[in-house]
Amino acid sequence: MKIEEFNNAIKSKISSGYELKEDKDSYGNASAWIILSNKRDSESVAKAVKAYKGRCIVATAYKNIDGTHTVIYHFDIEGLIINLQLETEDQSIFSITPILPSANWAEREIREMYGVEPIGHPDKDRLFLDYSLAKGVLNEYISLSKMQLGVSETDVLWENVNKEVKQ
């Protein structure tokens, strides 16, 4: 699969414009980055991946300083990685799982880890995160015990160790 060929396939399908970047690792494997201006266009790209019998490997998300979220889908078509990047301001994206079933778990995970809702996803259940924990855990950076008690588990255990050690 060549990046150019894929680019030709999506060119006319994307309504709001995008940026295409090419990348190569030190072993000569190429990969593509497609940065969308409108998150809605993810469905068009997913359809193109499907047409080439590609799959969604996984999706990554992170929270930006201004509170928006960036979501990156990683697709594979015959060994070529295509990274699709989009932004969301309202904690929602349009699910591509109905088009590419391989995106199923990736989108559920983004929902529970970042609280970003994949609209139209067929499965509403939690994946890994226990119901005793609020969704969106990866939006925070401080450990749970430190947040609740002001001391971390490490602090507590080391206090016990230090009681046993002659200073």
Binding site: R55, I57, V58, T60, Y62, H74, W105, A106
Partner: peptide
């Protein structure tokens, strides 16, 4: 790291 994400084989094999 600001963000690190990894996907293992079982993640997709599970379904």
């Amino acid at each position: 790291p600001v963000r690190m994400k990894w996907k293992v084989p079982t993640f997709t094999n599970w379904e």
